[in-house]
Write a protein that binds this DNA or RNA. Structure first.
Length: 758
DNA sequence: TTTAGGCATTCAGAATGAGTCTT
DNA sequence: AAGACTCATTCTGAATGCCT
């Protein structure tokens, strides 16, 4: 029999005490399949192989001689098939008995090795050949059989469940040893909803039965990996309930590094995704939903007020929790194609790929390619990183400019890597391509990284071609667009990957040569632009900001194409743009009237909302009217409001991230003292958390007069701090560029509350 | 289980220096 | 007259979050 099935997830397993893989699959008709298949992993030995061959022969290990590559150079290798799940231990014992021999790929996990070797991809279609299945709890279990990858196609219909938990403590963070789960909201893609409340044991039992009955393929939540699954497990243990949420009676299991596995289902935590979106300053569900542009009503109940609201207005909490579940479901629908495509591209299971960082995604993709071209996969080396020069940034010309064109190189680093064949396997003392910093790369044969980049580029073009052929807004179009975004993300991260010490293929020379060529390209472009009669008012890494560009820009673009062999694109034109003396900070309005603020306080999450808003309004007025006086008036408005104390407390909160365990800080800082206060009050604060505080009146350093934002009241706010250290500097930066001194801003003809009341 | 380097900015705390008082 | 002390200013390093 043969079935066309979609690979949902996979795990390592055993059959008759020997290693096997368990592959969970979905059919178009919605049926769930499990393929259990024996799998013998393998690894390679390189070096003096004679003795090694004898030893393994004596041990009855299957071995084959083969030719592989290490950094592009051919090597003789011995491939050993060993029927153990953990090859690491076997390999290290073997190596102790040998000299001049190195092992490769013994450190890869069983499922990863299986995927790499068979070319099978998660979240893709496969054909499964088998002699029949046994039905077990509604799952069609095949033991043995063959599985082969098929052409790419949209996924089958999957059953999706969104989940939201309500847990809280009277004071501080909830503690699973003490505080029960109060409520669970569930929401399915078939429209059904469940809200489980009451006695905690019943809540958990209902959860298990609903999950069992509805049998979702995907469980999606927000904060589930980091918090809720382990919380649930601990509560369940305490109450003597088995949290059977996985298929075939499995409980959630913490797999490596913070990710939780739920057997037979995809456990997706959107918080993992939110964390890597740089546009989000606070990674809440609210922000995430807003970023995705999803219409979802959320009547937010904040964590610190949960306990109180649960008593006084329980319906509000219940409503919010269900709104969250619905928003989570909607968000997943919006990102699922992207997630599945990223999973397929990198060969990492979907729930895993979201939890993985950019470096590991790139690496996994490169590993799939390495197997194809016979390049052995090296291990991570423990080395100290030496940093190297990066992109070139030209100091801007200060002040207000009219009509400025921005020219961007398209994928500069990837293009340079392709153009000069920059790669770890082409790096050579006698290479023909000589980087400005002296590193040399062979022009031929094509290097591994350029090959990877070209493959991705080709793939992207293919997708874009296909995109033109399918109707806009169709399922195919959506899936294809998600796929081309996934491809782009991987391609753009390859340069950075080569300069990452944690990388298996870390090669500083590659990263260094790439940026060196990049600097050469941008400086010659600046020079050419000037020769053509344009004024370069600013430039950063791969972009130039040009004045007097009419009739000259085309010539520059042509020169870039012909002489540099690269592509550049007119990105946008600013009607007006303002630069302070600082690099990486400016604001402008484009020809289509869009206000763009870059790097300035207005777009920084560590400034109070009042300062951000004041600066945004000030710069907007300045750019729209071109009149510094009007802009100054705008800034003064905000100062006046603060002097009167007429600004909402919410707008005074300053958020900062905790980046490490508190004990590792050497400097005393406001957000650290606030974090310490909160911990004393029972809150759990971990690296990655953001702490919000407000500056209150008093004497001494700032850190001695900050309060957690939800504990500060209007009468204790240090309004003058917000004037002098927030609004005036932020607006002053902008106004300073047009010659207005910052002290003009606070001259509003009004005295402060402080002056009135002492 | 942190893709890279470049950059501005704030705050704490040390270093520096001027001015004043004490012995 | 030398040293002790205070207060303000300047400098440096830690820390964060942005840009490409």
């Amino acid at each position: 029999m043969e079935n066309r099935l979609w690979v949902l997830d996979l795990a390592s397993d055993t059959l008759e005490g020997r290693p096997a893989v368990a592959i969970w699959l979905k059919a178009e008709d919605g049926s769930t399949w499990l393929l259990k298949k024996r799998y013998t992993p393998s690894f390679y030995l390189v070096g003096d192989l004679e003795k090694a061959a004898k030893i393994v022969e004596a041990e009855g290990i299957r071995a084959e001689r083969c030719t592989k590559k290490i950094r592009g150079s051919p090597v003789e290798a011995l491939k050993l098939y060993v029927d153990l799940e953990d090859l690491d231990e076997y390999a290290s014992k073997l190596l102790k008995r040998l000299e001049g021999v190195e092992a490769y790929e013994e450190d890869l996990r069983l499922t990863a090795k299986f995927l790499l070797e068979t070319g099978l991809k998660p979240c893709s279609w496969a054909s499964v050949e088998h002699s029949g299945f046994e039905e077990e709890s509604g799952i069609r279990v095949i033991t043995g059989g063959e599985i082969k990858a098929l052409e790419h196609a949209p996924p089958p219909r999957l059953r999706v469940m969104a989940i939201d938990f309500v847990v809280f403590a009277e004071k501080g963070s909830p503690n699973p040893g003490r505080d029960p789960i109060r409520l669970i909201s569930l929401c399915f893609d078939d429209g059904s909803e469940f809200q489980l409340e009451g006695e905690e044991r019943e809540i958990l039992k209902s959860l298990v039965s609903v999950v069992g009955e509805k049998d979702p393929d995907v469980i999606v939540g927000f904060g589930t990996n980091s918090t809720y699954w382990s919380y649930l497990s601990e509560r369940a243990k305490k109450l003597g309930v088995k949290p059977v949420l996985g298929r075939l009676g499995a409980e959630p299991r913490t797999s490596i590094h913070g990710h939780v596995s739920i057997r037979g289902r995809l456990n997706i935590d959107l918080e993992d995704m939110a964390r890597e979106i740089p546009e989000l300053t606070v990674e809440t569900l609210e922000e995430f939903v807003g970023y995705l542009g999803i219409e979802a009503k959320l009547d937010t109940v904040e964590e610190y007020e949960l306990a109180e609201r649960w008593r006084s207005d329980r319906d509000a909490v219940k409503r919010y929790s269900m709104q969250r579940a619905k928003a989570i479901l909607k968000s997943f629908e919006a990102v699922r194609d992207f997630v599945f495509n990223l999973s397929e591209l990198t060969s990492m299971p979907a729930d895993f790929v979201l939890a993985a960082s950019a470096g590991f995604r790139v690496e996994n993709y490169l590993m799939t390619l390495a197997v194809k071209v016979g390049e052995l996969i090296p291990k991570r080396a423990e080395i100290t990183h030496v940093s190297y020069p990066g992109g070139l940034v030209k100091a801007p010309k200060r002040g207000l400019h009219e009509s400025v064109a921005v020219l961007d190189f398209r994928s500069m680093y990837p293009s340079l890597m392709i153009k000069y064949n920059i790669s770890f396997d082409t790096l050579s003392e006698n290479g023909e391509n000589v980087a400005p910093n002296g590193y040399r790369f062979k022009a031929e044969p094509e290097g591994f990284l350029p090959h990877a980049l070209k493959t991705l580029l080709k793939e992207r073009r293919k997708i874009q071609e296909k995109l033109k052929q399918v109707p806009e807004d169709s399922v195919e179009a959506r899936v294809l667009d998600a796929r081309q975004r996934a491809v782009k993300i991987i391609a753009n991260a390859i340069y950075g990957y080569t300069g990452w010490v944690g990388a298996r293929w870390y090669t500083r020379e590659v990263a260094e040569a790439t940026t060196a060529w990049g600097r050469e390209v941008i400086s010659s472009t600046i020079k050419k632009a000037e020769d053509l009669g344009m004024t370069v008012i600013y430039s950063d890494t791969d972009s130039v900001f040009l004045k007097n560009y009419e009739g000259r820009l085309e010539k520059l673009v042509e020169w870039i194409e012909k002489d540099l062999g690269l592509e550049a694109k007119l990105e946008k034109v600013f009607k007006r743009i303002i630069f302070t003396e600082a690099k990486k900070r400016y604001a402008g309005i484009t020809t289509d009237g869009k206000l763009e603020i870059v790097g300035l306080e207005a777009v920084r999450g560590d400034w109070s909302a009042v300062a951000r808003e004041a600066q945004r309004e000030t710069v907007k007025t300045l750019l729209e009217t071109g009149d510094p006086g009007k802009a100054l008036a705008k800034a003064r408005e905000y100062v006046r409001k603060l002097k009167r104390g007429e600004v909402e407390l919410k707008k005074l909160i300053i958020w900062r991230q905790i980046t490490r365990p508190l004990s590792e800080y050497s400097a005393t800082q406001p957000h650290i003292t606030v974090a310490k206060t909160l911990i004393k009050e029972g809150w759990k604060i971990q690296p990655g958390d953001k702490v919000g505080y407000i500056i209150t009146k008093g004497s001494g350093p700032l850190y001695a007069r900050v309060k957690p934002y939800f504990q500060a009241s209007a009468d204790e706010v240090d309004w003058s701090y917000y004037i002098e250290k927030q609004v005036v500097p932020a607006c002053g930066r902008v106004l300073g560029a047009v010659g207005i001194k910052p002290d003009k801003i606070s001259e509003t003809g009004e005295s402060t509350l402080m002056e009135f009341f002492g």
